[in-house]
């Protein structure tokens, strides 16, 4: 049950997270920048399962973005993690924040680290 909540949460979180990208500052590509997240420590297999079950439907099979759900794959893991943490704190970033805040509150630091690295690196 806990896992199910986490999966749903991540799906929603990434939806609004992506939206915020269009409002954000210029971002360096993930492959051009070192990240603070220790990529060796994340569980990419677990993240892939989450992505396929809960993220792909909105953001596309390669996180390339679809419809009004923007692209994620070019973002830095640190940026993704930072925004997820902001949503988890309850702070609104844009008009779609209400899709993100409530589920974000259920995420652990490990959940955020896993999915942030996976989305930013799996589709290079």
């Amino acid at each position: 049950m806990v896992k199910r909540h986490v999966l749903t949460s991540l799906m929603i979180l990434l939806g609004v997270l992506a939206w915020t990208n269009s409002y954000g500052s210029n971002l360096a590509r993930a492959d051009e920048t070192e990240t603070a997240i220790a990529t060796d420590d994340v569980d990419l297999e677990a993240a892939e399962k989450i992505f396929k079950k809960s993220c792909r439907a909105c953001h596309g099979n390669k996180a390339q973005g679809a419809a009004s759900y923007p692209k994620l794959s070019h973002l830095e893991p640190d940026y993704i993690a930072e925004k997820l943490e902001i949503y988890r704190s309850g702070e609104k970033i844009g008009p779609n924040s209400i899709l993100m805040i409530q589920p974000a509150k259920k995420l652990s630091d490990e959940d955020i680290a896993n999915i942030s690295v996976y989305v930013a690196t799996a589709f290079d």
Binding site: W19, S68, G94, P95, N96, I98, L99
Partner: peptide, 11 residues
């Protein structure tokens, strides 16, 4: 303009 709704952005 954006509004306070899900999918609440412009357009």
């Amino acid at each position: 303009a954006a509004s306070n709704h899900p999918f609440g952005g412009p357009g």
